[in-house]
């Protein structure tokens, strides 16, 4: 009874806050609602018995990604109201398509039939005798090692992309060079100039 109640509360808060993310006028508010969505999803993970994923979601998405979003939104000062101004023209057609899709989804949902033995085929059932992290590790570094490595390659490409598309080498920029600064000797730092009387430094 209690898990069911918790599920409905969390699911409802996830859906409502996700809706608010899209409709909020103020972008800062939208990001805050996004954080609520992440928290609700983390709660759903806990209900499913995936505590580790729930914690990761909170730490990575709430702690890092959403806060980064918040910074970007605050720094860029985007006026979402003007951005959205043109979108009302597309509302009738877009809404109609969305409605048709939703109706189709509902029809399929009503006719939901899982294949025989689908539950048995689940590739990684929630483990009973070990904790989440050990179970995930055993899967990711053994059975799914290929996926893990491929995901690493995708991240490498993303990193290269960020560097290739944004890094610029500018000439004449003074940079700190610790090694050179520390190794400076008295001879190159201090110049003793013999100033002749009556002429000054010219």
């Amino acid at each position: 009874m209690l898990p069911a109640a918790a599920f409905y509360i969390l699911a409802a808060s996830a859906v409502i806050s996700a809706f608010m993310v899209v409709t909020a006028r103020n972008p800062v508010r939208a990001v805050l609602f996004l954080i609520v969505t992440f928290f609700s999803a983390a709660g759903l993970f806990v209900l499913l018995g995936a505590e580790f994923l729930a914690m990761i979601l909170v730490i990575v998405y709430v702690g890092a990604v959403a806060v980064l979003f918040l910074f970007v939104v605050m720094m860029l000062d985007i006026d979402f109201a003007t951005l959205k101004a043109g979108s009302t023209g597309y509302l009738p057609l877009g809404g109609l398509i969305a409605l048709v899709l939703a109706a189709q989804l509902a029809l399929v949902g009503l006719a939901w039939v899982s294949a025989d033995g689908a539950a048995l085929q689940f590739q990684a059932p929630t483990p009973e005798d070990t904790h989440n992290i050990a179970a995930l590790g055993a899967l990711i570094y053994d059975r799914y090692v290929l996926f893990f490595q491929l995901a690493g390659l995708v991240l490498l490409v993303a990193m290269m992309g960020a560097i290739v598309l944004t890094l610029r080498h500018r000439d004449g920029v003074k940079r700190q060079d610790m090694h050179r600064q520390v190794n400076r000797t008295r001879a190159e730092a201090v110049d003793v100039i013999d100033v002749k009387r009556g002429e000054g430094i010219g």
């Binding site: 399929v108 006719a111 939901w112 039939v113 899982s114 294949a115 689908a118 085929q121």
Partner: peptide, 23 residues
């Protein structure tokens, strides 16, 4: 969700049954 697996072979097995086809 409908086949219960991501492998092509398992999906092929699920697709050959009648019930799951719509999904």
């Amino acid at each position: 969700g409908f086949a219960g697996a991501t492998g092509f072979d398992a999906i092929a097995a699920a697709a050959s049954e009648d019930g799951a086809k719509i999904g």
